[in-house]
């Protein structure tokens, strides 16, 4: 049962991913991105990180993917071009991606066994969401990254407004 669910979500994530990078039509590619992100969210659920799964859906699908689709629509004249979505060096790109994947497989299999049996991991504490929240606000843990993340968001917001705002015609 778990395996079936794992395979389902993996297929969603990977097929979605392949569609993202091959679809010529950008809105479709973005929809495929949503599919892929949803698959990844499913994997989080399997990994018992429910909070992250919800945040994944909320932030990635609810905000980033919609933002991307919106930007595609705003710049839509280029969406309907006839040319291929890939550039001229796509062959090399494919080769390097495949080689990279092969290398990763080698490295991963050397470090973490593939075998099915005898897999065990400590149980996730019941209040892991709470633990996450506390870790983010703990002076002995991650309060600094948490605060810096807010600085990052603020500067990104200011920056995006400055860059994208239309010319003043007061």
């Amino acid at each position: 049962m778990t395996y079936a669910v794992f395979i389902l979500f993996t297929l969603m994530a990977l097929c979605g991913g392949v569609l993202v990078v091959t679809q010529r039509n950008l809105v479709r590619a973005a929809t495929a991105l949503v599919l892929s992100l949803f698959g990844v969210a499913g994997l989080y659920v399997l990994l018992e990180a429910g909070f992250l799964a919800a945040v994944q859906v909320l932030v990635y699908i609810g905000a980033i993917a919609i933002l991307i689709i919106f930007a595609i629509m705003l710049t839509r004249r280029m969406v309907q071009g006839d040319e291929s979505g890939l550039n001229r060096q796509w062959g090399w790109a494919l080769v390097s991606a495949v080689v990279m994947f092969a290398l990763f497989c080698y490295v991963v299999v050397k470090a973490w066994p593939l075998a099915l049996g005898a897999v065990s991991a400590p149980a996730v504490p019941a209040d892991s969401t709470e633990a996450l929240g506390l870790a983010l606000l703990d002076w002995e843990q991650y309060v600094l990254p948490f605060e810096i993340a807010s600085v990052l968001l603020l500067s990104a917001m200011v920056g995006a407004v400055v860059i994208a705002r239309e010319k003043h015609d007061s």
Partner: peptide, 8 residues
Amino acid sequence: LARRNAVA
């Protein structure tokens, strides 16, 4: 590496 469009 392979896409042409910046959004892609």
